[in-house]
Design a protein around this nucleic acid. Sequence first.
DNA 1: CCTACCGATCGGTAGG
DNA 2: CCTACCGATCGGTAGG
Lengths: 190, 190
Amino acid sequence: MPRPGRKDELLEAAVTLFSQKGFHATTVRDLAEQVGMKSGSLYAHIATKEDLLEEIVMRSAEQFQAAVAPIVRSDAPAASKLRQAMAAHIRVVASDTGAATVFLHEWKALSPERHASVIAARQGYEELLAAIIRQGVESGEFRPVDESYARLLVLSVVNWVYQWYKPGGPLGPDQVADRFAELILHGMEP
Amino acid sequence: MPRPGRKDELLEAAVTLFSQKGFHATTVRDLAEQVGMKSGSLYAHIATKEDLLEEIVMRSAEQFQAAVAPIVRSDAPAASKLRQAMAAHIRVVASDTGAATVFLHEWKALSPERHASVIAARQGYEELLAAIIRQGVESGEFRPVDESYARLLVLSVVNWVYQWYKPGGPLGPDQVADRFAELILHGMEP
DNA sequence: CCTACCGATCGGTAGG
DNA sequence: CCTACCGATCGGTAGG
């Protein structure tokens, strides 16, 4: 008889273990121990280990989308949108670095049939960033930069954050985003 | 009786499989099949599966270092060094995307005792990029940007290349590097 | 490099 | 949610 909230504890444990050891190196016995059960009991809550991975990945994808989409839809200058979008993205990473790690690093452990929805979610997200850059170029706010490489530059830097960001460091998510946005907008040369 | 060059074939097979499926999801039987042996025979060439991973990772680390270090030591303007270093890095990725993927994505599967040397190699590499930025700031060629975030920006974009770069695409490594360097040096705003 | 095999461990199930 | 367990597969070894 599952007690309420137990599924969320399990997801949380999976985020921790999958992000630290990787999906394949995490056993159902690791997961069970982390939540204080026997391994067989997990299956009162889930059907397969992979279901946990899928749920973490899809939840994370939705968080990025939900954080950035409203910014893109607002009417603000492109530079402002870019700053805000980067900050929103980094805030999502910072709020749960484990989940971000699983989303960006472990999603390929999903079976090929489950890849498609993740790829679609990522493409949708990339299009949000592309829209900001397009707006900036079309309005003349940005130089006529190559849209796809500008998008890749922004995407690279925000997606790499999970590799090094530690909550509790000297700079919070918004300050990190400002540093990067400033560099990307103004460049390194005077 | 191992025949010569067989170890390299094995490393190549490991690069392919580790980069595609991940280290933990690749079995010694997968590896053996890829080189046309029985799984037990692998152990005439290696002591453990992890040795293959370590060798791939360390070789890759050396390639990045060897490609970029001479550029940093040369006497050229910082902007030129930055372009060249990015191009050299991306060339290493492009020349063997599998090895780059293993180096950047799978190295954490190494046992904790083997982490240290990888981390040291990566820090040494990051210092190379930092030196370029420092030169530019000190010479006045660059604005007084925050060194560590500028380094992270460059590192993010070149390290993310393995995620999307496909050899045979429209742009070669040098052109990709030029696009990114131009954006980083001049920024997106006019 | 093969045959034959080992102990350990894996994800998951049956029955309560 | 536990006990008890299963078939499959794992990395690796012995002996040739």
